[in-house]
Amino acid sequence: MKAKRLIIRLLLGALVPVAILVVWHVASVGSVVVPPIGAVIEVLAHPLREPSALDATSLASGATISVLRVVCGFGLAAMTAIPVGLWVGRSRAAMDMLSPTMAAAMVISPIAWIPVTIIAFGLSSPATALYGDEHWRYGLLDQLRFAIVAVIWLGAFFPIALNAAGGAKRVREAHIEAARVLGATRRQVLAKVILPSAAPSIMTGLRVGGGIAWRVIIAAEIFPGTRGGLGYMITTAHEQASYQYAFASIVVIGAIGLVLDAVLRLAEHRVGRWQPKER
């Protein structure tokens, strides 16, 4: 009977995607803009092809660039936001000082910062920093432009920090005191009580920040003045009127976003296992 339940659930889950495919197929008949499903699948099946419609780069390399940019920006955001968040959560002075600014900054779309980061960082990247004029030889490194990574950082930093602060603030005083009576130093209290206690909140912040980071990178790559990545491929394909490449990019973006969210949700669930079920 459990198998029957599972099959029913899978069928229900498949209903909407199938409906979308049906609508897509109908729309593609006789349309110039909407490519046939078959054409899109054909593009997806050859991710290493380098068509002129995509500025002679492959779907696979575009995806790699976008993912790497997110990894860098999100990684930096996590490394900076978690300590800052914990500090703000535990220090009344820090909270009074930083919390209003962080709350205000969080509602500004990171895309709005792109002109600022481009002025600040220009076209500099790890490649220009390491290799100067020869930077163009080091494709991948050159694509990790600081301006773009900074925008991702701006998107992910605030949700991570605010969630970390919330988690740090909610640590039970009784737990801290129990550790202190057992002889814990301030550092040990941080490592053995505050961090594990705040970990589920931090994970929630990472999940939210990760989702934002993925959405921001695509938007940043569509923004004029940037090159490379899946977002850039979408605009290029549109310009070349090769819509099957644009649709294929969208499918890839959705798939990667889904995987990212699923992985972070799984991590969030495993970290939060010890918590009581009712909140």
């Binding site: 039970r172 009784a174 737990h175 005191e177 129990a178 550790a179 009576v181 057992l182 002889g183 814990a184 040990q188 053995k192 009580v193 594990p196 206690s197 970990a199 010890w274 918590q275 009581p276």
Partner: peptide
């Protein structure tokens, strides 16, 4: 000095043995 309170001071993210070893771990 050892302190035993009424309830709620065990660390919920640690298993029983890890709770007991906390003092020695410190």
């Amino acid at each position: 000095v050892g302190l035993v309170s009424q309830e709620g001071t065990l660390l919920p993210w640690r298993r029983a043995l890890a709770n007991v070893t906390l003092g020695l771990e410190i």
